[in-house]
Structure formats: C-alpha cells, structure tokens
C-alpha cells in the first residue's frame, strides 16, 4: 500500500487484486448471490480508492480494509432491506387489488401478444425479454447494450401504448 500511495501502478494493481481475493469469502458468506458479491466488491474497491489517503502504511492493512468492507456491506444490506420493505408495501396494495375479480379479463393473451408485435422493435424485444423470458431490466440492458434506466423508460412507454390500444 505504501508503494501504491507513492504512485506505483503495478503495486496498486497487485494490492487491489489481493484485496478482492481477501474479501471475496467475507462478502460471499454474507450475501446470497454471486452477482451481489461482485457488485459490492466493486463498491468496496472504489471506496478503497477514494479513502486510500486515510491509510498511512504504519498500521495493519487488514483492519482498515475490513472496516471499509463492513461499512459498504451494511450500506448495501440497508438499501436491500429498505427495497424489500418497499416491495412489501406494494404487496399490501396488491392485496387490495386482488379483491377485484380479475378472472374475467376483457383482454386475451392473444390480443396482448398481438399488440406487442405491433410495437416498435426495441420496445417489443424489451417486453418479450422481461415478461416471457423473465429477465430483469438490468439484464435486458446488458444484453441489448442499453442503460438500465433507458430500458425502464422504453418499457414504461410500451406499457402506455399497450394500455391505450387495448382500451380502445
């Protein structure tokens, strides 16, 4: 770390690689999915980079990096559970909606599917991937080279068009 603080690129690359190897089991033990571990690892490495001036090289490295990793992990879990809570709220709303008889839908699967085909190609692809193939917006974004927010916006527009067409 002392060498990397002095601007040694090779030493810094090695340090970052060793750090990610060191933290991998720590994060994997606490998170369920590999993609979550990877996401968080990236955040930890960025945090290390941002906070590297708070390490002077005169005290052990591990407690310092573990403090950062623990901090980012707590942040991540806090955000994750807040999101879960938010989804739970959505389910409460859903329960109210479920009281309504939805078995007799005015729209058939065929009519929806037909309307999806009529959408612009990109929107149709996004809806097909998200609803038939079960991809998340993030995964769709990665597959078709778009940003996650662009996928969400495109999907939203597609829903709007579909709703208008089906209500006609």
């Amino acid at each position: 770390m002392k060498q990397s603080l002095a601007g040694d690129q090779h030493a810094y690359t090695t340090l970052l690689q060793e750090t990610s190897r060191l933290l991998q089991p720590y994060l994997a033990k606490r998170l369920g999915f590999t993609n979550e571990v990877d996401d968080l690892m990236q955040e930890v490495l960025i945090s290390l980079h941002k906070a590297r001036h708070t390490y002077d090289g005169n005290r052990p490295y591990k407690p310092w990096i573990y403090a950062i990793a623990r901090f980012r992990l707590q942040d991540y879990l806090r955000a994750h559970y807040a999101d879960q809570l938010h989804r739970a709220d959505d389910f409460f709303e859903l329960e109210e909606i479920l009281q309504i008889d939805v078995t007799e839908s005015p729209f058939s699967y065929e009519s929806i599917s037909g309307e999806v085909q009529k959408l612009p190609e990109k929107q149709a692809t996004i809806l097909r991937m998200m609803h038939q193939e079960g991809y998340t917006a993030k995964e769709v974004a990665a597959k078709i080279n778009m940003t996650e927010s662009a996928v969400k916006v495109a999907a939203h527009r597609a829903y709007k068009i579909l709703r208008q067409r089906l209500e006609k």
Binding site: A6, G7, D8, T13, S20, Q42, L45, H49
Partner: peptide, 14 residues
C-alpha cells in the same frame, strides 16, 4: 475496474 483504478497513479499524501 481494478485496471481502471490502477490508472490513477497520482501520488497520494496520507
């Protein structure tokens, strides 16, 4: 990401 971060070779004052 590691390669990207390692590009920043500025000397850091502790």
């Amino acid at each position: 990401l590691i390669n990207e971060l390692a590009q920043d070779t500025a000397v850091v004052k502790p």
